[in-house]
Nucleic acid binder design. Structure first.
Lengths: 229, 229
DNA sequence: TGACCAATGGTGGCATACCAGATACCATGA
DNA sequence: TCATGGTATCTGGTATGCCACCATTGGTCA
């Protein structure tokens, strides 16, 4: 019967230049290794507008958004620079992320379906046999996806949106959070315990485990990431 | 000796028009009762630029920031409108706030000074004798200041910044959160228990009480605020 | 009389020009 | 040779004008 109805296509109105520029720039900032080089990274409005083929106006509005999100900082008559978070700031962001994911776990035990929770287990299938060592990069990505999945299971879009930027910042230092000592192995154990608590619908335990897991990371970064700053 | 040296004045560079416009607009949106009227509130770039005495450019950039924060929504060729959050969105925001303030309480037990915590008690001195009824507006403001104070005690600026906008949105519906049933009285009891836990440095209890207090509010809004939407 | 269409007014999106200040470079003098 | 000061140039900030597009309205035709 649906075939007889004209399927309305919501018209993919082309995204505004401002939005396109915003996405391009955010993607570029996310991809680059901000902490890899010593000198500060400058963005030139005019150069960007030339490269993207639009005028400065949409570029500036995109930069305004990125500034509000803490990715860039613009100094009048000096330039726009990509911000490099200090270790203390990163620790504080991880703490916030801990609180948010802990709530997500709480909500997940109340609203997520058994099937959705069970799917979490498959995310680490690739690493079940061997140890994560040697595939640290892949494991790190799986790691981030796991935590994002928990956020998703909360069914709270505000949570999803507020954590998105936090993840981007944390992704930039992910090589530091994994691959030191035996963190990867202990991390997997933590994850399995979390999944188990979610499946048992043990609200307090699930949220508690998630909180502890994330706060541990904050302590770890605090102690072992002197190369930041 | 200092008199012989030229004292340097660091020059207070005036805030950019964009920033001034942003503050003015945010202040105006915060002050107005968004949920009081039925028809949507439109903002006209040209009218605003005329009223504020600047061109459209800084106005647009201010609106871009406000849009990123969820206060306005701009529809191409229709206008910029002040967003009215749905009940569900407000509930979700309260949940997020619950998680963040819970973390703040946790951190406060670890880092705040005894004196800072003790100061929390004085915030309700005006309401100690009589009941809050009859002064609901003042009590509501004291209420918000109390919760903001806990966030401050965390010593985590990221928390402070992420909750600021949440409070603004919640302030808009504050007449609904207080002044129904005996919420005000129970609220004071909750607050005193929270302060006590903070003073005893009982981390888990403090964060748990704060979480419960806030999540209770979410449930309350969910149930008793049908007039939203 | 009602429905449809064309014209017009108004909106945000974008491009461009100009401005003030900061930097970098170079000429100049000791 | 080096310190100094001026100047060219580059940067973000702002003002302004045009454009595409939607909504409304008034008129016209069936």
């Amino acid at each position: 019967m649906t075939a007889t109805r004209l399927v309305i296509k919501p018209i993919d109105s082309p995204a505004s230049f401002r939005l396109q520029a915003y996405r391009k720039l955010k993607e570029a900032i996310t991809a680059m290794n901000v902490y890899g080089q010593a000198e500060e990274i400058r963005l030139d409005e005019r150069r960007l507008s030339q490269e993207l083929g639009v005028s400065r106006t949409p570029i500036r509005e995109a930069l305004t958004m990125l500034q509000r999100e803490g990715f860039v900082r613009t100094v009048p008559r000096r330039g726009v620079i990509v911000v490099r978070k200090s270790k203390q700031e990163i620790v504080r962001m991880i703490q916030v992320w801990a609180a948010l994911e802990s709530l997500a776990a709480r909500l997940a035990t109340l609203h997520a379906s058994d099937r959705e929770i069970a799917n979490l287990r498959h995310m680490f299938d690739d690493f079940r046999d061997g140890s994560p060592e040697g595939h640290l990069d892949e494991y790190s990505d799986a790691n981030i996806r796991f935590h994002q999945a928990i956020i998703q299971l909360s069914g709270n879009p505000v949570l999803v949106e507020m954590t998105r930027d936090l993840f981007i910042h944390m992704r930039a230092i992910r090589q530091a959070t994994i691959g030191q000592e035996d963190r990867a192995k202990r991390s997997i154990v933590d994850h399995m315990n979390i999944i188990e608590a979610l499946q048992r619908r043990d609200t307090d335990r699930a949220s508690g485990l998630v909180l502890k897991h994330a706060l541990d990371l904050a302590v770890h970064v605090e102690r072992h990431c002197e190369y930041l700053d």
